[in-house]
Amino acid sequence: MKESVLTFGPQGGLVGILSDPLPEMRSPDRPALILLNAGLLNRTGPYRMYVDLARDMAKKGFTVLRFDFSGLGDSFTRKDNKSDEERAVLDVQEAMDQLTRKKNIKEFVLLGLCQGADRAHPLGIRDSRIKGIMYLDGFGYPTPGYHVRNFGRRVLHNVRAMTKLERWTHLIKKSYSRFFKNNTKKGSPKPTETFERQFPTAKQFESDVRSMLDRGASLFFIYSDGIKYYNYEGQFRDGFGSLFSNDRLQVRFFRQTDHLFTSLTRRKELFQSIGDWMQSQFSENGKK
């Protein structure tokens, strides 16, 4: 495995690190994996997760690029009136162009965590060079099963909390506040992750996923237990069961982990899962 700096885009202002497999591990028809910034963090990812993942995948024979979107990390800021989403599309397309020029790689898989997954989605719809996307805590949609479990969780949480004195104190204060003060928050919608991240509608999402699967892309949705909008293994299947007629769609739910896979044990399982999926979808033996 060898790492090198890759600069590209206008005036070479986009900065990334390329992890190349050893020559004997390389295969010309394998797609390159591109890791997209998680929120505002730079290309090393939370807990340096992207560095470890890139090295891991390069050892398995995949070329990996992790780079900073324009305006993040060490990359320049584009001076135009485009939205962040449009800039992200341009940035990734320039990354792919550069990998084709430098490495003669013409197919790509994107991996994004949280907002990174959101950025990957429109690219997968628009650009047929993208053969796969791994969504880590990407878009998700509540189902009846989700609401039942969520209700159960809240009841359990409150029952547990009732055994604590401070909870009673909190409840008394809250009741007092409701009775005697003007509660301005009443009726106002709570900000949710869905709202902040601007999820497409469920119908639009289903249509997007179907179109990507129909053109031959492989999609892997990985959800952690640390997000509010996904809470059981079969939630995706319950919401979009008809998409599963295509075996290029996979979903995995990681219990007992947070959004950023803070636990090293859970992160190891995540990497294993990612590696297995990449091998099954894109290596010579596993290619579908």
Partner: peptide, 19 residues
């Protein structure tokens, strides 16, 4: 987050990591 905070006692090494 439900992360193990255990240290195995060898040089303060924590198998599930530190932060």
């Amino acid at each position: 987050l439900g992360i193990s905070n255990a240290s195995n006692g060898t040089n303060g090494h924590r198998p599930d990591g530190f932060l």
